[in-house]
């Protein structure tokens, strides 16, 4: 869902670039030096994971996972995705140079919004669930109770994932539509063709979030919304 060079009008390019630069600056301000390796490695992992194809009937799809990236990185999602897009452009010449800012906004902003909206739910979920979901089989929670607990995290992930990709789809379509009458049919087609992807992204972000919360709960515990979650855990260690 990258927009390429030459499609969108230059005023949109200028506007999006300004927004993108301020967003990246905003994200960088909220990063501590100690978090940089973690953020870079996560960004690299997303880059690597984007080659995985999910089989869907006779075709297959790539995942974006920006909703998940938002939940994991918070404001740092902007520099992380920007670095990823830059590398993509640099290494593969893929993605466009002038539209770098626009593509960043279209991808990262919904991810960040997903973080702002759904992180509080995840926090609540953390407070209410017994500390380790999978850890000890001896923990005597009722089976159905545990089942619901387990799926609440999944549900939060599902919503965040679907929300982020739906947001990206709409923003890409909107960018196209803003660039001229000519692109409106294409934009409509794009939204329709990608509708199933909204559900699929949701399912995957749900599964992965569940996975991450059970293996690395400290990533999500106790987050001050406008700070990088990773940062929070390392300060915890330091004190």
């Amino acid at each position: 869902m990258h927009i390429m060079d030459g499609v969108v009008s230059s005023s949109l390019v200028v506007g999006a670039t300004i927004v993108a630069v301020s967003a990246v600056g905003f994200g960088l301000k909220r990063i501590e030096p100690d978090d940089i390796p973690k953020i870079a490695l996560l960004a690299a992992a997303f880059f690597v994971a984007s080659v995985i194809r999910v089989p869907i009937g006779p075709t297959s799809a790539h995942l974006m996972l920006t909703g998940l990236l938002g939940l994991v990185l918070g404001p740092a999602i902007f520099p992380a995705i920007f670095a990823g897009l830059m590398l993509q452009t640099f290494i593969f010449g893929f993605g466009g140079i002038t539209v770098l800012g626009l593509n960043l906004v279209n991808m990262a902003l919904p991810g960040f919004l997903a973080y702002l909206i759904f992180m509080p739910f995840l926090q609540k979920e953390f407070q209410s669930r017994a500390r380790d979901l999978y850890a000890s089989s001896s923990s005597s929670g009722h089976k159905t109770f545990r089942f619901i607990q387990k799926n609440r995290t999944f549900l939060i992930g599902f919503c965040a994932g679907s929300f982020a990709i739906a947001g990206s789809l709409l923003m890409v379509a909107f960018s196209l539509a803003l660039s001229g009458q000519a692109f409106i049919p294409v934009a409509k087609f794009m939204v329709l063709a990608n509708l199933p992807l909204i559900v699929i992204e949701g399912l995957f972000v749900g599964v992965i979030l569940q996975f991450l919360t059970s293996l690395k709960p400290e990533l999500f515990a106790q987050v001050n919304l406008l700070q990088t979650p990773a940062l929070q855990s390392s300060t915890e260690l330091r004190t």
Binding site: K38, L42, A49, F204, I208, K216
Partner: peptide, 18 residues
């Protein structure tokens, strides 16, 4: 399984970052 695979990749990347 693919979801778990991706999740595992993230966990490893985080730990490597640490």
């Amino acid at each position: 399984s693919i979801g778990h695979l991706i999740g595992m990749l993230f966990v490893r990347s985080i730990e490597r970052g640490e």
